[in-house]
Amino acid sequence: MNRTELRFALRMIPFLDSVEDFEDGMVRLRDRRWLVWHPDVMAALFRNDRDLRHPPSRTLSPLLGNRSVLWLDGAEHTAYRRTLAPMLRGARYRTLIEEMVDRSIAELPAGPTSVLMWTRRLTLRIIGRVVFGVDDDELLTAFTRWLDRRLGSRVRTLAHRYLTPGATRSDPQLDAMLLHRARTAEPPALAAHLPPEDLRDQVVSLLFAGHETTASATAWTLYWISRTPEPTADLDATIMESLRLSPPATLAGNRMSDEGMVITPSIYLAHRRAATYENPHAFDPARGQPPPGAFFPFGGGVRHCPGKDLALLEIRLIVTALLRHKHVRLSSPSCTPQLRGAAMAPPPSLAMVAACRR
């Protein structure tokens, strides 16, 4: 590993900040691997995505499994997305989400609580209901502990990635609980349509991807609203600007050509490119429509997130309900992003006090 790739791995956000002014929108991490963010390159890459391979993440594949839909290619990937996509259509879950949001708001303590921990608990409950059809807080708590042991800090993430490369990071007891719940779900949407040997990887992938980035995006939206003296009445524009400036995923997965060239799109850098966005570090929900390839918080090409509509609905309903029922005050005027793999969230120390509106 050369010095550039080492900086990228160990201190990703400072490294990305250090190269954001590269006008060509790309930097070589090592021989035959490039980090790219120029909008023209991104648009072309996503247009031709079906002709590329998608190597698994060295951080996440030991967690989610090698059979996760996130790493499959070709006809297999297309078939799995067709199976999973109907589960993730947002509109069918509006009533469920509203009920779970109201319950979580009612459970908020009178004193400070971590914004991120609250949004993670809530979004995991929601995707748990989507996947399993029932509430199972014991199972979801065990899932959270398992994730935290492996991704709870940058040190843990890097230790698992580089000190035990290739080693599985699954938990047999947790896997047995997840499989039992998936097989007894009503209706058994996953178990009825997936090969038994792939069921575990898809369940874990749905739970992880279905709550981690949504929780981060919701927390970031609340953070930016708290930092804006005169917030806009257009919540959708506020959410989109939050996704631009604080994307919950810094990278959009690896692409590999037939010649073995690996290209890693940087969402973080594409969204902060000065040649694309005027005053890119300012939070401005009134920005116009960005050009193709300049805004992709949910990824792009054949790898765009199938749960995008569900995630946006959750963010909108959570923020709307919280601000309608509570007067929300955040504890800190600024915060340093925290990474879990390539996911970027506010630190757990960012606390909110949610007082009842009179």
Rank of each mutant, 00 (worst) to 15 (best):
A215T: 07
T78V: 13
H271K: 04
G166Y: 10
R273P: 05
L339Q: 07
T214F: 07
A233P: 09
W220R: 03
T320H: 02
I13V: 08
R81G: 14
R303H: 13
P188M: 08
R183I: 04
S170F: 02
M256S: 14
G253C: 06
S331D: 14
Y93H: 13
I97G: 01
G90I: 03
L84H: 09
L310G: 02
I315M: 12
H77R: 11
T228H: 08
D137R: 12
A233I: 05
R244L: 10
Y162H: 15
G166M: 10
L322M: 12
E197A: 14
A44Y: 04
A342M: 07
G25C: 03
R161M: 13
Y277Q: 08
M177Y: 03
R357F: 13
R324I: 08
L174S: 05
T214I: 09
S170M: 07
T123C: 13
L158G: 03
A237Y: 04
P337D: 08
L194W: 04
R11P: 00
P188S: 09
W224C: 11
S257M: 02
H304S: 11
T78C: 05
F296L: 06
L29E: 02
L147P: 05
Y93E: 07
R340C: 07
W224H: 15
M240R: 15
S205I: 00
V19L: 03
H304P: 01
D175S: 14
G133F: 00
A233V: 09
S349K: 07
P337Y: 03
L243T: 05
A252W: 01
M352R: 03
N279D: 15
R3W: 12
S68C: 04
P172Y: 15
Y268V: 03
L330R: 13
T157K: 03
V69I: 14
G253A: 09
A189T: 15
M26I: 08
G90S: 04
L199A: 00
T4Y: 02
L151E: 11
L72A: 07
E98I: 02
R303T: 07
P291K: 12
S57F: 06
L243P: 06
D102Y: 09
M12I: 00
R244M: 11
P333G: 08
R103Q: 12
G210F: 02
D258C: 11
W224S: 04
I239W: 07
H193W: 09
L124S: 08
V203F: 05
W146E: 04
D309H: 14
V36P: 06
R50P: 00
S68Y: 01
A110Y: 09
Y277W: 13
S331I: 04
G260R: 05
G301S: 00
D31I: 09
E278I: 10
M100R: 15
G25P: 05
W146G: 10
